[in-house]
Amino acid sequence: MAEKIMAGVTVQVNDEGYLEDPSQWTKEIAMEIANDLNIALTDKHFEVLDFLRAKYKAGTTLTIRMVGNSGIVDIKELYKLFPAGPLKFSSKIAGIPKPTSCV
């Protein structure tokens, strides 16, 4: 665990840069993480992030299939929003732990 200053706030992150405490997350922090991943966040991105955060809070194991069935984006669009990491990058930007599911 390490401390990192993001968007002017000190947050706790793990070795891979995922936030340790999802409650420290802000939209500004999301933009900074996304920037490191070369992703420019749009409203659509934030809709996905909000969905993931809500599901995580509810204790659900996240899958791309779930996001695909959310009505926000289909899986193809999800890949376009978060290239090469539809679930791991979106989770990282959403400030929640790295997903443990294989789907």
């Binding site: 194991t61 899958t63 791309i64 299939r65 779930m66 695909g68 289909d74 899986i75 193809k76 999800l78 890949y79 539809p86 599911s101 789907v103």
Partner: peptide
Amino acid sequence: KLDIPPVDEFLEMITAGG
């Protein structure tokens, strides 16, 4: 129950990702 889809949907997920 583990959100693993039927074969056709699974194939669509794979091709959606390229």
